[in-house]
């Protein structure tokens, strides 16, 4: 596939990034699980960056309380499926990006079949059941995945199932081995979230995706990053 030089010129001229890296993005196939607060910015920026194929899976519909942070949607989209609307808008804005949408819930039956089509999975979900499923299926299929999650003014990001500099891979179960339930932790609906926060964390996730796919820099493999939007503190910890 010929790269549209003009469109991506500003990132192709970067030191340590070039036509070879841009071509890697063009050949990449990524799946975004959840087109919500995290999924909206990752979809927009990764499609804009020149990712070749993007899958979007979400069973949920747009609600008015989503609109302060789920920036792909407008009032007109309320009640419509998020994956379908997001897919239409990404296709309209970035026609070179091939989008496939799955208006369904990710579960044990469909996860393996869907994941096998992708090089990298991005977790934009809002529950532990889905996150443990992503962890398990990515481990089975040897696919790296990028975890992100937000709470109030803070967010976490990590890259799982990707070897660090010492060849060690971490999994979400290394972070929280006991199967967490949604009841044990407060979610956005209960705690609230500042709209811009998933925008920042989703873009950190998009940055990690670009680093993993184009093989530049040091991705957050085996490292958990926590960002606090109130004091701008970033805390990182080695997982295993």
């Amino acid at each position: 596939m010929a790269i549209n030089w003009k469109r991506y010129e500003r990132q192709i001229i970067l030191p340590n990034f070039g036509l070879v890296q841009q071509e890697k993005l063009a050949k990449a196939k990524i799946l975004v699980v959840g087109a919500g607060g995290l999924g909206c910015p990752t979809l927009l920026y990764l499609a804009a960056a020149g990712i070749g194929q993007i899958g979007i899976i979400d069973f949920d519909t747009v609600a008015e309380s989503n609109l302060h942070r789920q920036i792909l949607y407008t009032s007109k989209d309320i009640g419509s499926n998020k994956a379908i609307v997001a897919g239409e808008k990404i296709t309209m804005a970035y026609p070179d990006c091939l989008v496939k949408t799955y208006a369904e819930k990710l579960d044990e039956k469909n996860a393996s079949l869907i994941f096998t089509n992708y090089d990298l999975i991005l977790d934009g979900c809002d529950n532990f059941e889905t996150r443990y499923l992503i962890d398990e299926v990515c481990k089975q299929q040897n696919i790296p995945w990028i975890y992100a999650s937000v709470s109030r003014f803070e967010g976490q990001v990590s890259v799982f199932n990707l070897p660090d500099a010492n060849g060690i891979k971490a999994y979400y179960t290394n972070l929280f081995a006991d199967k967490l339930s949604n009841e044990s932790v407060l979610n956005c609906a209960e705690t609230g979230v500042l709209g811009v926060l998933p925008g920042i964390i989703g873009n950190m996730q998009a940055l990690e995706a670009i680093k993993v796919l184009s093989q530049i820099g040091q991705p957050l493999a085996n490292i958990l990053l926590t960002f606090n939007g109130l004091n701008n503190q970033i805390y990182t910890t080695q997982i295993v």
Partner: peptide, 10 residues
């Protein structure tokens, strides 16, 4: 020592 809870929001 850092005390790190899981986050669930997306």
């Amino acid at each position: 020592l850092a005390l790190l809870p899981p986050f669930s929001g997306g």
